[in-house]
């Protein structure tokens, strides 16, 4: 089978994440085979036949028999078509692709997750991985923000599940809010610095809009995090997902196979073409 030909899969469930439903989570089950096994941070190529394909990070955490979950924001043609799809509809899936968060290397470490908006999607896979093997990791801290309370994704986990996990703290913020919000109102990087975490034995993992990542990295550096302990995942235009179509290079690295997960140390040695 050609690596570019997807498997047909069925959408089992669609959950709107935000009030405007510009982000939806899709549960997807391949028709002919078991769900492939994958690691936190990997992505898959999703197809709407007749429209095209796009890379989407896998937001679920692998468990035999469980469906794949993708949280998708409507930004372009393919994501627009995905948002029009209904439960029971067929889409194409191929993957898993790319590297992943080096969870084995991080055993015993403290982890600081910093997410913005839909950027929580790849982090969710990682967070739930850590929650499931809780004993393997130190303290878990999540700093997460969105434009408004209505734009916070994965509310059940944010408000109900994760705060209950022992040794895990969830810190939420929004850019702007009305009376219905009594939490923090601040930009994620500012809030992060205000909370001020110790870099000792800690890995900081951040994902969100490019501008947020930039300021978050600056904040982390001021907090004393070393470049190799700051980890992010990149988004760039990819088409084949397998290192063949040539599109997604940043210098001599291909985001599709060498990424999407990079340390800030790795990124610093690459051209700023992302």
């Amino acid at each position: 089978m050609d690596p570019l030909v997807p498997e047909v899969a069925t959408i089992r469930k669609i959950t709107p994440e935000t009030a405007s439903a510009d982000v939806k989570t899709f549960e997807v089950q391949p028709d002919e085979s078991e769900v492939f096994s994958y690691e936190p941070g990997q992505y898959a190529m999703l197809s709407v036949f007749g429209v095209g394909e796009c890379p989407v990070s896998i937001t679920s955490t692998y468990e035999p028999g469980a469906p794949l979950e993708f949280s998708i924001k409507e930004v372009g043609r393919v994501t627009g078509a995905l948002h029009e799809a209904q439960v029971g509809h067929k889409i194409g899936v191929r993957g898993p692709y790319g590297n992943h968060f080096p969870v084995k290397q991080w055993q015993g470490r403290r982890l600081l997750f910093i997410g913005g908006g839909i950027g929580l999607a790849p982090l969710r896979s990682l967070i739930n991985y850590c929650v499931r093997s809780r004993e393997n990791f130190g303290e878990l801290q999540l700093v997460y923000g969105a434009r408004s309370p209505k734009d916070l994704c994965f509310k059940e986990e944010l408000f109900d599940n994760w705060p209950e996990v022992s040794g895990m703290q969830v810190h939420l913020t929004v850019d702007a809010a009305g009376d219905d919000w009594d939490g923090e109102v601040a930009l994620v990087p500012d809030f992060l610095e205000e909370l001020s975490f110790s870099p000792d034995d800690t890995i900081a993992v951040t994902c969100g809009p490019p501008i947020m990542i930039r300021f978050t990295i600056e904040a982390l550096k001021r907090m004393g995090f070393a470049d190799h302990k700051i980890v992010t995942t990149l988004e760039i235009k990819m088409q084949c997902g397998v290192g063949n179509c040539g599109r997604c290079n940043i210098g001599d690295k291909y985001v599709c196979v060498d990424g999407p997960v990079f340390t800030y140390q790795e990124l610093s040695s690459l051209p700023q073409e992302y």
């Binding site: 570019l4 036949f49 007749g50 429209v51 095209g52 394909e53 088409q239 084949c240 063949n244 179509c245 040539g246 599109r247």
Partner: peptide, 9 residues
């Protein structure tokens, strides 16, 4: 060798 993928419906 760069290529693109596209659908024609």
């Amino acid at each position: 060798y760069c290529f693109a993928l596209f659908d024609d419906l």
